[in-house]
């Protein structure tokens, strides 16, 4: 089993802040795995993304990306392995047209022109933006912009993709499309995905979830295991899937339900059985 990302005992403190943003954080991500990091605003999630890409330097601890220890000398090599998609695509645009924008990263890597054209087209097709080649990025709507930002990352063919709340501005359909694209990349190309999010659909897509609170990892497990914590998650300021919430309310109200009901279908089925028995 290959390890794509290994974080060991990492601590970090922002200047002029009394509390540590991260305190002795350790976790790993396997190659080809989808890890979701959840936690409320200020829990340290986004700090992790910045440390992994070397935008910030850890005060203490060790980070290894695809077997390369992250330090000042390896930082450029490490960045070649990672593509990051941020929350707000407006801060990520440099090109005057959509295709120029996707080309930017490729130009910096010295990719030959012919291959570049091919990769741009392929990447934009993957995010359903192939008919926007000549459009100006700043005139696109929010969701379209984010899809272009994702295309820019895909074109570079990184081994790891970090989504830092990357779907929070998309509409439901746009979000589904983007997540489907990422899922496909994960499966086809063994790309490792780290998604930092509040979105329950992104949590459900994960192979494994870690929960952050006050700069520490407080829970780790599969989505089912994490959602089973119920109220504890709500105390951390996180939402629960609707089915979990309604199931709990029904039980409190005396409905003799047995399961935990992570999905609406599961809850509907048990209520149906109950209804028939009466």
């Amino acid at each position: 089993m290959e390890i794509a990302v290994r974080v060991q005992d990492v601590s970090f403190q922002y200047a002029n802040q009394s509390d540590y943003a991260l305190k002795n954080v350790s976790f790993h991500v396997r190659t080809g795995e989808w890890l979701t990091i959840v936690g409320h605003n200020g829990s340290g999630k986004s700090t992790i993304a910045k440390l992994l890409t070397g935008l910030l330097q850890a005060e203490k601890g060790r980070i290894e990306i695809c077997g390369i220890p992250l330090n000042e000398e390896t930082i450029w090599k490490v960045r070649e392995q990672i593509g990051i998609v941020f929350q707000n695509p407006d801060n990520q645009f440099v090109g005057t047209t959509v295709q120029d924008d996707v080309a930017f990263g490729l130009e910096n890597r010295g990719v030959p022109r012919e291959e570049m054209t091919e990769r741009i087209n392929e990447a934009l097709k993957k995010v359903n933006m192939e008919s926007f080649l000549e459009h100006e990025p700043h005139r696109l709507s929010g969701g379209q912009k984010q899809r272009v930002a994702i295309a820019s990352v895909i074109a570079l063919r990184p081994r790891i993709i970090i989504l830092d709340e990357a779907t929070s501005m998309l509409d439901p359909r746009g979000k589904k499309e983007v997540l489907a694209v990422i899922e496909q990349l994960q499966k086809e190309r063994q790309i490792t995905v780290i998604s930092i999010t509040h979105d329950l659909d992104e949590v459900a897509k994960a192979d494994r979830v870690i929960v952050m609170n006050k700069g520490m990892v407080v829970e780790e497990g599969t989505p089912e295991q994490i959602f089973a914590h119920g109220e504890k998650l709500e105390e951390l300021g996180l939402d629960l899937p609707f089915a979990v919430k309604l199931s709990k309310r029904l039980k409190d109200a005396g409905f003799p339900l047995t399961g935990d009901h992570l999905t609406v279908e599961g809850l509907v089925n048990e209520l149906w059985t109950l209804y028939l028995k009466m």
Binding site: P172, F242, V264, V268, L271, W272, Y275
Partner: peptide, 19 residues
């Protein structure tokens, strides 16, 4: 229209069509 409906409404829809 490709729009979501509130989860509560979807739940109602699913359960009603079952029972």
């Amino acid at each position: 229209l490709g729009l979501d409906v509130p989860e509560t409404v979807l739940f109602k829809h699913l359960l009603e069509s079952k029972i």
